[in-house]
Design a binder for these strands. Structure first.
Length: 282
DNA sequence: TGCCAGGCTTCAC
DNA sequence: GTGAAGCATGGC
């Protein structure tokens, strides 16, 4: 158990930001995270102090990297023109946001599953997948399941996968697993590749289009210029920017800008103040 | 009970 | 190349 001081860091904002699906709030107020086969409980103690249920060594090697704590997100606010009231408010609202450095394989499967599903339904499906096919683990008396590897999924049939509430996405996940297990999808290479090369490779997979590819690029490969455009982002661009968002202005930072937009756009604070067409125009 | 969800593939045209 | 239809299932 260790305590660290971290500025501009919010567990609740990260957990509710739709980029990760195995970070959940416990009754104690702490957050449980399962990633890279590890189990972590972390709690906001106030005044910028956070408790982590791991050793100093594990924090250094895994979690400080996972939470992207070495990036200064404050700099990004200086890019926003003062007349952009929406982004100014969005950054103020989500100033504890981080773009996590998640496992690329888990991110790929998670965002394949995410299409046409609500966030609670995505979490359920992923948890089903882990419980049925992931390796059972234990940490300080806590039982949990690691995310199943490509090899573990590749040997299943689509019926087994479908029973995890994946619906029609079962065949997409099966195809990705077979590709990754067979060496046709190399995440080490994608991490090294430039954004466009990685995007083209991801979109060549069955069931991965523009939006899912951009989510994998941003949340799994940490390509910070990826800009996933989902229903929420499209609604915001239509309502706040007349249908055209000035992406060029934020080259290199589009990913975090998108995340501020997404998190603020889904918030009650914004929806209460938003024009009606934001809510009704689906 | 019915609608909707961090979209994608397929198939007309 | 573009647009519409169809898709499985959970959550609210």
């Amino acid at each position: 158990m260790i305590i660290r001081e971290i500025r501009n860091f919010s567990l609740s904002q990260i957990a509710d930001s739709g980029q990760c699906f195995r970070m959940n709030r416990l009754d104690s107020g702490a957050y449980r995270i399962i990633a890279f086969g590890k189990y972590l409980e972390t709690m906001d103690l106030g005044d910028g102090r956070f408790q982590f249920s791991c050793s100093s060594d594990e924090y250094q090697k895994i979690w400080s990297e996972y939470f992207d704590l070495h990036t200064d997100y404050l700099d990004i606010g200086s890019l926003i023109p003062p007349d952009d009231a929406f982004l100014t408010a969005a950054i103020r609202f989500g100033r504890g946001m981080r773009i996590l450095r998640q496992d690329p394989w888990e991110t790929t499967v998670s965002f394949i599953i995410s299409q046409r599903k609500s966030i609670p339904a995505i979490k359920t499906a992923i948890e089903n997948l882990c419980r049925n096919f992931g390796t059972p683990m234990e940490c300080n008396g806590n039982q949990y399941f690691a995310f199943p590897s490509a090899e573990q999924i590749a040997c299943l049939n689509t019926g087994d996968i479908a029973r995890c509430s994946l619906g029609y996405r079962d065949k997409y996940v099966a195809a990705a697993a077979q590709k990754a297990a067979g060496g046709g999808l190399n995440f080490s290479a994608l991490l090294q590749a430039d954004e466009e090369t990685a995007r083209t490779k991801l979109k060549s997979l069955y069931g991965i289009g523009d939006k899912v590819a951009n989510c994998i690029l941003l949340f799994g490969l940490h390509k910070m210029n990826a800009f996933p455009e989902d229903t929420w982002i499209n609604r915001i661009i239509a309502s706040e920017y007349g249908g055209s968002f000035p992406k060029d202005r934020y080259a290199g930072y589009l990913g975090i800008i998108q995340q501020y937009m997404f998190y603020y756009g889904r918030s009650l604070e914004y929806l209460q103040a938003a024009p009606l067409n934001i809510i009704s125009n689906t």
